[in-house]
C-alpha cells in the first residue's frame, strides 16, 4: 500500500513482480463477491446442464443416473416432436425479431420528427414494457377471450369472433402480438437514443446537396445506426429464444403443440415429466442455436460496411 507510482509507459506483458501486492490483494477482495456469484449462479449451472444432458434420461427411484453419452441428443434429434418445437421456435424468432426491430425503427424515426406531443406518444409506446412479463399475458388473455373485449370490437366492426389462443393457426400469431406489444416500445427507446446521437449537420448538409428523405435515411441514418441496431437485434433475439412466461400463462404449448417453443418444452420435460437429462439436452441445443444466430448477426452487422 506504499507504492503509488505508476510506470509512465504501459508494457503489454508485465511480470508478476511488477504488480503492487497491496493492489492485487485489493483487487481480489473487490472482485470476490461478484465473481463468486457469477461462478455459482451462471457458470456452474451452465456446466451442470451440459453434464446432466449426458446422463441417462430414465432415472429409476433409488438408482443413480449413469453416463449415457450423446444418447439424449440422438433421441431428441430423431424425435419429430422435438423437431416440431425447433421449427416453431425458429419460425417465431424469424418473424418476431425482424418485425419488432423494423416497427421499433419506424416508430423511432416517426417520433423524432417535429410533431406535436411526440414525447407523450413515446411514453404511451413505452408503458407496456413496465407491465411485468408474467402479467401482460394475463391482461391479453382476458382481452382476447372468446367473449372478450377484442372480439366484441371485431363483431362491431363486422369481422366476427376470432378464436385467438384456442386455435392452432392463430395461437402463435396471438403470442407474437402480445410480445410485440411489450417489446416494440422498449426497443424503440434505444433506437431513439441512437437517432439523437446523429449530428444534425450531417442531415442538413445532405439536404442542401439535394438528397431526398429516403436517400438521407438509407445512406446517412442507417449506417450510423449500426451500433444501436446491432444491440436491439441481438438482445431481442436472445429474449425471444428464451421466451417462457406468455406460453406458460396463455397456451401451455398448445393447441396441438402449435406454440410449443423449446424453452417451454424443456420446462415441461424437467418439471412435469421429471426428465432432467432430456430437458438439459434441449436447453444446450437451444443455447447452441441461439449463440450461432447471434454470432451470425454480429458478423453481418460488422461486415457490411466500415465505421
Amino acid at each position: 500500500m506504499t507504492d503509488a507510482k505508476t510506470p509512465p509507459r504501459r508494457t503489454k506483458r508485465r511480470r508478476f513482480d511488477s504488480f503492487d501486492r497491496g493492489e492485487v490483494l485489493a483487487a481480489l477482495l473487490f472482485l470476490a463477491p461478484a465473481l463468486v456469484a457469477l461462478a455459482l449462479f451462471r457458470i456452474v449451472p451452465a456446466a451442470s446442464a451440459l453434464v446432466t444432458s449426458l446422463k441417462n434420461s430414465v432415472v429409476l427411484v433409488g438408482v443413480s443416473s449413469s453416463f449415457a453419452g450423446l444418447d439424449n441428443y440422438k433421441t431428441l434429434l430423431t424425435s419429430s416432436e422435438f423437431w416440431g418445437s425447433v421449427k416453431t421456435t425458429l419460425l417465431f424468432v424469424a418473424i418476431v425479431v425482424p418485425a419488432q426491430t423494423a416497427a421499433a425503427l419506424a416508430l423511432a424515426v416517426l417520433l423524432t420528427q417535429k410533431i406535436p406531443l411526440a414525447r407523450a406518444w413515446r411514453l404511451f409506446l413505452f408503458l407496456p414494457f413496465s407491465v411485468p412479463l408474467g402479467i401482460s399475458p394475463l391482461i391479453w388473455g382476458a382481452a382476447l377471450r372468446p367473449d372478450g373485449i377484442v372480439n366484441s370490437a371485431l363483431v362491431a366492426a363486422g369481422i366476427g369472433t376470432q378464436p385467438f389462443f384456442t386455435s392452432p393457426t392463430q395461437a402463435l400469431p396471438s403470442i407474437m402480438l402480445v410480445v410485440s406489444w411489450i417489446g416494440v416500445g422498449y426497443w424503440m427507446v434505444f433506437l431513439i437514443a441512437g437517432l439523437q446521437d446523429i449530428p444534425n449537420t450531417y442531415l442538413e448538409a445532405a439536404a442542401i446537396d439535394g438528397a431526398n428523405w429516403w436517400h438521407r435515411f438509407w445512406h446517412i441514418v442507417l449506417p450510423l445506426m449500426r451500433r444501436p441496431l446491432a444491440f436491439v437485434l441481438v438482445a431481442n433475439t436472445v429474449a425471444n429464444f428464451i421466451l417462457f412466461a406468455p406460453i406458460q400463462v396463455l397456451t401451455g404449448g398448445g393447441p396441438r403443440r402449435s406454440t410449443n417453443l423449446i424453452m417451454f418444452d424443456a420446462y415441461q420435460n424437467a418439471f412435469v415429466v421429471g426428465d432432467r437429462a432430456t430437458a438439459s439436452a434441449q436447453v444446450v441445443i437451444l443455447l447452441i442455436i441461439m449463440l450461432s444466430i447471434v454470432i451470425l448477426q454480429f458478423r453481418l452487422l460488422s461486415a457490411d460496411g466500415r465505421a
Binding site: P45, A46, T52, I242, V283
Partner: peptide, 11 residues
Amino acid sequence: LIPFDAIAIPL
C-alpha cells in the same frame, strides 16, 4: 451471454 432463464432449471 448465457441467459439466466436458460440455466434456471439446473440451478
